[in-house]
Amino acid sequence: MKEVVVLSGKGGTGKTSIVGSFAALAKNKVLADCDVDAADLHLLLNPELKDEHDFWSGEVAVIDPEKCTQCGLCQEICRFSAIDNYTVDASSCEGCGFCSRICPPEAITMKERYSGQWFISATRYGPLVHARLGIGQENSGKLVATVRQQAKQLAETQGIDLIISDGPPGIGCPVISSLSGASLALLVTEPTLSGIHDLERVLGVCRHFSVPALVCVNKSDINEENTHHIEKYCLEQGTEIAARIPFDNTVTEAMIHGKPIVEYSHNGVAHHIEKLWEKITGTLAG
């Protein structure tokens, strides 16, 4: 089974718009939205919810005020400053359980933490696995792993051999979780200094986890000099540029109409994305 994950380092470079078009172009696939923090892919694919699951992950300390003698030991030993005034700030608690083990009157217990939900939906492009991380929750990496795992299971049971994932921005926990073990990463960047800086870092992560990468320069004409710089950088790194997509308002228009670009228009941008998808399928096959 092949799995393509679309990443960018920097946010807002056009990952989701591109994945939406891949959804329309690829024949037989499962779609996975691994940006569990701020999922947007569903806005393009009009999913029909089939299955909904709660996601529990990790623990959080809870202090029983009846038993608490306010000795303050927990506050002293907590490395995450999660206890103040004998109450636990759930958003700071990392669930290590240290406090619950040393509390003299045993007033602290560890409770399972509700961390979000994940869904399986039907779209006219194929099944979509997506999720919603609870507000301010940690463990986004585990929720991403859940989404990927479910996508894989779906693909296996339905005899599908391709998964297309929309990844999160950044280089941390959820990105690593989206990337590790994938067949190919498509890195969508833009010719801005921020875009270049972030591309270099996310390419480093791909290398760290030995996942081959292709680069797509989106909005390539907003700064030709920077685009040139990216081309030179990728050449030095031995990373292939799979597409240069010029800036076009059609991308936003398509988003406003809730449609993948390749279904909304057949002009230049759509054509570039079609070419890009051909390139990716070629790379996966090769």
């Binding site: 569990v36 923090d37 701020a38 958003s91 507000i135 301010g136 929750q137 940690e138 921005p169 941390g172």
Partner: peptide
């Protein structure tokens, strides 16, 4: 950072 998960909470807290 972008998003709504723990790094964001840590930053804006």
């Amino acid at each position: 950072p972008p998003g709504t998960s723990c790094p964001v909470v840590e930053s804006v807290r």
